[in-house]
Design a protein around this nucleic acid. Structure first.
Length: 570
RNA sequence: CGGGGCGUAGCGCAGCUUGGCUAGCGCGCCUGCCUUGGGAGCAGGAGGCCGGAGGUUCGAAUCCUCUCGCCCCGACCA
């Protein structure tokens, strides 16, 4: 291919809308253009990269006994009603109506359709296990599309669904996918970390997310450098404290004392007014769980994790109560809530179990209570792990201090169990002729997002440094002056030589000044650049530049194909 | 959905507060000359419904109302 023929206009300036480097470079290098918020057109170079990522995925899916199919984007509402997700998925789903007033959605995910497909055709355990996958556009009406292709409303995803006869089979499918994912991201030139995760709206038991560590990532994760524990903070657990410590401590505690705390409503104000540290305080937060008020208690210096609280409460909707509700429930202004005397459910974090001299709100204006003790002064409806993990917290496996990082989620694997096969009645007859629901798993990779993640991890100030496996082309040949007969002849000859050797090569045949061509080559990120110029040509030599480390080699024309091939393919 | 910001040439922006001549600048684009090792130079040129609708006014990019779109922060998510 010749660069003059490639439709991929490069931009000198950074488009105002792009915040992340990956987004900026994808636009500047001419890989894609925006169509509307969260929706993009891929141009030739960008599409080649996508195809390369997909090819890697397909190979690994095939090795893991995956079979490719293509499910519809447009899906009927009835299916989604069967699993109750038509409403549960809510505003995030693009919904549409046909001329007969029938309702449809653009698939945000495909559990329903694929389960419906399999239930129609699979009846016997002899037909299982099945691992079916697709690479398909998905649609989610994101509240706020962001970061270019990383949070789009239309995006490309690979999703595989496994159907097994029992837990053991599911476990094998899960492991097979887990390992395939590890290989896929490695081959894409990414360092991706599998972390324990929360299963969210899709539901299910075990789940891991594959995170590409990047400061620009949206997910907060913690990991242990002493063992292999790693988790999304939504999920990261704390070990429950020893029960014996609790009873002993509370027996020794002093009686409740009232503290005058005029206009002192926040943790910060309390610590300075009372001259104590935040770990002596008990934060009481009033939430509305499915519209009913509940109180959640956690130590003053910790952050409450709403995902954990929602799980502990087993509710659909969880929001922090408004001021009015809080005042009604606690009969005090916001900032003076406490557990003593409350008549709503009280969920207590582990951190509060061992606190015998806790300071809490008194449910009365300008008043707090000291020495508040669980079991004596108030009762817990439930005790749970509600705390959000952060750097320095103990690892739940080995107690070493955790470290924190941010990550871009590029893939996730779920054990779904019978969450979809039961409501959708995807069943089979086992060897005893007994009807059983299939045991399912689902496994996704954000393909378009992976492309952005690769750029986040592989770039410098000049542009993208594509890993070879996903580079749109491997080599670019840049004649310094293509109008110069000698340079043109050599450049053309080297180009032909590489073409014949089946190397993915482009020739910069534009009559541009060299600076322009070098800048574009760096921006687009061809792994190897071969410069044909007047300096070395008399010696029958060319200059070979390695994009990712800027290393330059002088190579004789007779050896250029061989040496470059070795650089590329080892 | 709450908070903030922005829509003026393909891209990046000025002009708007205080209404007034033909709406500007840089980059890109076209033609010619010239130049060729890191986004050159000279000369000429094309390109605008100033996001849209309504209003105020003798007169609106500029003021008012409504609307659409885009971006950022937050709550939600591959």
């Amino acid at each position: 291919m010749q660069t003059s023929q490639i439709y991929g206009p490069t931009l000198r300036e950074i488009p105002a809308e792009a915040e992340l480097v990956s987004h900026q470079f994808m636009l500047r290098a001419g890989l894609m253009r925006k169509s509307t918020a969260g929706v993009y057109t891929y141009l030739p170079l960008g599409l080649i990269v996508l195809h390369k990522i997909m090819a890697i995925i397909r190979e690994e899916m095939t090795s893991a006994q995956g079979q490719e199919i293509l499910l519809p984007i447009m899906q009927p509402a009835e299916l989604w009603h069967e699993t109750k997700r038509w409403d549960d998925y809510g505003d995030e789903m693009f919904k549409l109506v046909d001329r007969h007033k029938r309702q449809f959605c653009l698939g945000p995910t495909h559990e329903e359709v694929i389960t419906a497909l399999v239930r129609a055709d699979v009846r016997s355990y002899r037909q299982l296990p099945l691992r079916l996958y697709q690479i398909q556009n998905k649609y989610r009406d994101e509240i706020r599309p962001r970061f270019g292709v990383i949070r789009g409303r239309e995006f490309i995803m690979k999703d595989l669904y496994s159907f097994d006869i029992d837990e053991q089979g599911l476990h094998e499918s899960y492991q097979a996918m887990f390992q395939a994912y590890t290989r896929i991201f490695e081959r894409c030139g990414l360092s991706a970390l599998p972390v324990e995760a929360d299963s969210g709206a899709i539901g299910g038991d075990a789940t891991h997310e594959f995170m590409v560590l990047a400061d620009s990532g949206e997910a907060d994760i913690v990991y242990c450098s002493a063992c292999d524990y790693a988790a999304n903070v939504e999920r990261a657990e704390f070990v429950a404290p020893d029960v014996h410590t609790i009873t002993n401590d509370s027996a020794n505690s002093d009686c409740i004392q009232e503290l005058d705390t005029p206009h002192t409503t926040t943790i910060d104000e309390l610590t300075s007014a009372l001259e104590i540290s935040a770990d002596k305080l008990i934060k009481t937060m009033i939430y509305l769980a499915d519209k009913k008020p509940i109180a959640a208690l956690i130590r003053g210096d910790y952050t409450l994790n709403e995902v954990k609280l929602q799980k502990a409460l087993d509710c659909q909707e969880l929001v922090l109560a408004d001021a009015q509700t809080t005042e009604q429930v606690t009969s005090a202004p916001v900032g003076f809530a406490g557990p003593v005397g409350l008549s709503i459910p009280i969920i207590v974090d582990y951190s509060v179990m061992t606190m015998s001299h806790g300071i809490t709100g008194a449910n009365q204006r300008d008043l707090h209570l000291a020495n508040v003790t669980l079991g004596r002064d108030y009762q817990a409806t439930a005790i749970a792990d509600l705390r959000e993990a952060k750097s320095g917290d103990p690892c739940p496996h080995c107690s070493e201090a955790l470290e924190s990082a941010r990550g871009i989620e590029v893939g996730q694997v779920f054990k779904l169990g019978t969450k979809y096969s039961e409501p959708l009645e995807a069943t089979f007859l086992d060897e005893n002729g007994k009807k059983r629901p299939m045991i399912m798993g689902c496994y996704g990779i954000g393909v378009s997002r992976t492309m952005a993640a690769i750029i986040e991890q592989n770039h410098d100030s000049d542009g993208i440094c594509w890993p070879i496996n996903v580079a749109p082309y491997h080599v670019i040949i840049v004649p310094v002056n293509y109008k110069d007969e000698a340079q043109k002849n050599v450049a053309d000859a080297v180009y032909r030589q590489f073409l014949d050797a089946k190397v993915a090569v482009v020739l910069d045949d534009r009559h541009e000044r060299p600076g322009v061509k070098f800048k574009d080559a760096d921006l687009i990120g061809y792994p190897i650049r071969i410069t044909v110029g007047p300096r070395l040509l008399p010696e029958k030599q060319v200059e070979v530049t390695i994009r990712h480390n800027k290393e330059q080699l002088t190579i004789h024309l007779d050896e250029v194909l061989e040496k470059v091939s070795r650089l590329l393919y080892g």
